[in-house]
Amino acid sequence: MELHTIAHGAGVVFIFLGIATIIVAGIGLFKLPDLYLRASAVGTSAGLGVAAIVVGALLMDFSWLNLIKASVAIIAQLLTSAVGSMAIARSGYLNNSMPAEITHTDDLLKTRRDNFES
């Protein structure tokens, strides 16, 4: 019973950590200046937030079957959030969404076609 209580408490802590991460990611959406910063900071932080909530739920209701389900869910969540962020950022660059003014170096700009025609 004692172990059960500890696991339950840890589960609640993880769920609240996950919620806090997602809230911070939401604040980041408003504060960061351009698409790329948002995608890199927020996209994957939100992935971590969901992963933390899954871990919390697993701790509150532990079984071996749930452990397998949770592992698959976390791996899939992290992979898809990474691939999704890359796809969004790349398509944004191809559609002429320029990085914010504070971006001090842009090596990818050298490969742009319109850079050669000017």
Binding site: Y36, L37, A39, S40, A41, G43, T44, S45, G47, L48, L78, L79, S81, A82, V83, S85, M86, A89, R90, Y93, P99, D107, L108
Partner: peptide, 26 residues
């Protein structure tokens, strides 16, 4: 994927021909 998964860095494009990763860093 690992670069993108790390918050604050993001792979924008790769060029296998030139062996270059274009990375956006925060």
């Amino acid at each position: 994927c690992l670069i993108t998964l790390t918050p604050g860095t993001l792979t924008l494009s790769i060029s296998r021909e030139h062996k270059i990763l274009y990375v956006h860093g925060m």
